[in-house]
């Protein structure tokens, strides 16, 4: 009986002593925590996407706290809400951020673009693109194996019928998919002002482009001639729209023979019938 008491006593005393030592040293050797940084870190969304230019949310909160970074509008996933939170916490004016969304600049789904070979192996765009640039007949188009889907933390991108499609409502412009895409066909496009986009990255000459995909830009220049703002040009055998000058009038949509011009907001000049057609086929389902 006495031995068990002894054991309990020894354990109790040593526990007490060690506890006191720990308590003392935790005070003596405490690492100073920047409360400001911890608070700012709480305000950030925690996606660690790197869209701000710093490696993680911790990194961005650190530079904001120590004052080496003054811009509070760098967090793309956080959007306007985080800017306002940061502004009120830090006591500065809330600046606005240009609203953007990622967009897959390709309409080559299984109906529009056929495969030119059978690819067998890991279902990854990066790995498929190592074999002769991928199995898509268009050398510039979406491979549809969903590397972008794997990196998206907001469930904003899905592969529908062999083509990655971004949901602009969910997209936070964190640019993870933009960095991941081996074909580099995902771009950030403005969302706060209506504009039209050319959903094609094919740089082949028209003869080839026409063969590889039904919705490839064939650089026919009809949109260039139709544009009243003169903001469309042909670069590398495909039409490129200057978003800053585009008024989303819809003239280019009407003349495009390949239906590869798209707008998030149906252009005002189109008739009801034509409006129904403006949302490209791939985005309707």
């Amino acid at each position: 009986m006495s031995s068990i008491l002894m054991a309990a006593l020894i354990l109790g005393i040593s526990g007490l002593v060690l506890g006191i030592i720990l308590a003392v040293f935790s005070q003596l050797m405490a690492v100073p925590v920047d409360q400001r940084q911890a608070d700012i870190r709480e305000l950030l969304p925690g996606a660690n996407c790197g869209a701000c230019g710093y490696t993680t949310c911790d990194g961005y909160s650190k530079v904001l706290a120590d004052g080496s970074e003054e811009q509070i509008n760098l967090c793309k996933p956080g959007g306007q809400q985080v800017i306002e939170d940061l502004a009120s916490y830090m006591g500065v004016d809330a600046s606005s951020m240009a609203q953007t969304t990622a967009m897959v600049m390709c309409q080559g789904n299984r109906d529009n673009m056929k495969k030119r070979a059978d690819y067998k192996g890991e279902t990854s765009c990066h790995m498929a693109s190592l074999v002769d640039g991928g199995d898509a007949s268009c050398g510039y188009g979406c491979l549809g194996y969903g590397d972008c889907v794997k990196v998206c933390q907001y469930d904003a991108i899905h592969v529908i019928n062999g083509l990655a499609v971004v949901d602009p409502d969910k997209c936070t412009s964190c640019t993870m998919c933009v960095k991941e895409c081996p074909k580099q066909i995902i771009k950030l496009v403005p969302m706060d002002k209506p504009a039209s986009f050319v959903l094609c990255q094919n740089e082949d000459q028209a003869l080839v482009a026409n063969k590889v995909c039904e919705t490839a830009c064939i650089s026919c220049k009809r949109c260039v001639k139709a544009c009243p703002e003169e903001c469309i040009s042909i670069e590398h055998n495909r039409a490129v729209i200057d978003y800053s000058r585009c008024t989303n009038c819809g003239e280019c949509h009407k003349v495009c023979p390949k239906d590869c011009i798209y707008s998030l907001y149906p252009p005002k000049l189109l008739t009801e019938d034509e409006k129904a057609k403006t949302r490209p086929r791939v985005l309707q389902n």
């Binding site: 693109s129 074999v131 002769d132 640039g133 050398g139 740089e203 082949d204 000459q205």
Partner: peptide, 12 residues
């Protein structure tokens, strides 16, 4: 003289 792809690399 036009763009095309070479074997193995897939680059134009």
């Amino acid at each position: 003289i036009r763009e095309g792809d070479v074997t193995s690399s897939g680059s134009k």
